[in-house]
Design a protein around this nucleic acid. Structure first.
Ligand SMILES: [Mn+2]
Ligand SMILES: [Mn+2]
Ligand SMILES: [Mn+2]
Ligand SMILES: [Mn+2]
Lengths: 256, 256
DNA sequence: TTTTATTTTTAGACTGGCCTAAACTTAAGA
DNA sequence: TCTTAAGTTTAGGCCAGTCTAAAAATAAAA
């Protein structure tokens, strides 16, 4: 199945809008107009959410959805929303695997900054051949997560469900470990690295007053004050919790 | 200047067709408006050659040529042919630099076979950012030639003129060094490597009988018989000749 | 239950890049 | 010089992907 860049991006975006956590991870990058389009997890993706996510007009999304439906890559209920078929999800996971492998490669092998790799990967993900994918995977020793902590789907389309908590939901006194950050906004990423909020960092929440718009943190040895906007891009695990590292066989269990 | 993949491929192909001398319509001195401007000396590239090189129909080439002419990237004399302007040549050399850097990177860093890298680079050349280009260049220590012996244009658009001789033009008794091979045909490349005809290889022509369709060679320690088809993809220098390694400042000397 | 607001789809148009068929220009041959 | 062959451009169309404006469907409010 050889799809256009646009079609692949639609499939990927549908997948991400349905995925737990990632939808929320992407929130800080979305404008106000997109708020409120956050469908319940597992519900079909609305045309509007898809259009917002891809920065296109709603009729463009409708048109592509109909095209993908005719290819049996999505199921479309008019006026209700769209869901991936197993075949569509398989392709979405392939594109996401490409994206995250490329990000990791650019960061680890070429030494690019972690705020730059996302935009590059957005282009590379569509032209990566299976051969190059395999070479990159081997060169990196089959990494499981990209530089932002996002799990990399396996070659056969399985992906770890992380289930981390939003940092914003943590309360005063909580000791947490940063697990994942949104890779969408380079400026936010640069700021997060500056204050030490990178995957693996351990920190304590000193004060969490939502109405103040800031979070007071003890990151490693430093006291930090972080606004809610960057904090919204951070996912954590609560120290002591067992990390949920089970592989979901999403594609396989739905494959016909 | 942000151009489509198609436009970049047209510019690159025009450059290569001029470089390799494949052109048709003779340019008997036309003393008109195209004389003293950015139009360069030499025969223009014909619509047909361009269409053949890009595997498109002639009217498609005409259409794109008109578009590029309106962007001042080529000079088009209807029914006569097309030549690059300095601005067009600069872009062509950028694309070629991307292509050859990527080929080198894929071969040296990822360990891909030299018969695979060309097709990959054909895609990558259009999406390489300046940042990634710089990182690749640095990782390879600013290579001057790609795995097939083709010179890599510099960042500022200069390229070494190699001036190697076709192996087919060598005569019996000639001792030569392989300098460059065509990277177009993977099967030919695999064959060339098998018989040792790779850049740097030294060999002696034992018998060159054009009518026989084969060349008898002594490649390093091995006696080899090579057909004219693969031999056509090989360029050599004659041992003892001084290699012409001067950098042509093509783009710079014509820049307005 | 009826009206209104919101979301989605349809209609129609545009651009880029490609195509075939036909007309045109140039070069070559008689 | 006239005719023909070859090469190039124009004419007209198709497809992918996008857009805006208008119509239709659904959800919310009255
Ligand atoms: Mn993309
Ligand atoms: Mn990432
Ligand atoms: Mn190309
Ligand atoms: Mn090459």
């Amino acid at each position: 199945m050889v799809l256009s860049t646009a079609a692949e991006d639609y499939l990927k975006t549908i997948y991400k809008l349905r995925e737990t956590g990632v939808r929320a991870v992407g929130n800080e990058a979305r404008g106000n107009e997109a708020r409120g389009n956050e469908a319940r997890e597992g519900a079909p993706v609305t045309t509007q959410a898809l259009a917002d996510g891809l920065q296109v007009a709603a009729p463009s999304a409708t048109a592509m959805v109909k095209k993908l439906a005719s290819l049996k890559l999505v199921a479309h209920e008019p006026y209700r929303g769209v869901t991936l078929t197993p075949a569509g999800e398989k392709i979405a996971l392939e594109v996401i695997r490409h994206h995250r492998l490329v990000e990791t490669f650019l960061a680890e092998v070429l030494g690019m900054d972690w705020d730059q790799v996302h935009d590059e990967a957005e282009k590379w993900e569509h032209i990566l051949s299976e051969e190059v994918e395999a070479k990159i995977d081997a060169a990196l020793n089959s990494p499981t997560h990209d530089p932002h902590g996002a799990p990399i789907p396996t070659l056969d389309g399985r992906i770890a469900s992380d289930g981390w908590q939003p940092l914003l939901r943590a309360g005063a006194g909580d000791r947490v470990t940063v697990r994942r950050v949104s890779d969408r906004n380079p400026a936010v990423l640069r700021h997060l690295r500056e204050v030490g909020l990178i995957p693996g960092a351990r920190l304590e929440v000193l004060r969490a007053a939502p109405e103040s718009g800031v979070l007071e943190l003890q990151v490693e040895a430093q006291a930090r004050i972080v606004g809610t906007e960057p904090a919204r891009a951070v996912w954590v695990s609560h120290d002591g919790d067992t990390p949920s590292s089970n592989l979901q066989n999403d594609a396989a269990e739905n494959r016909k």
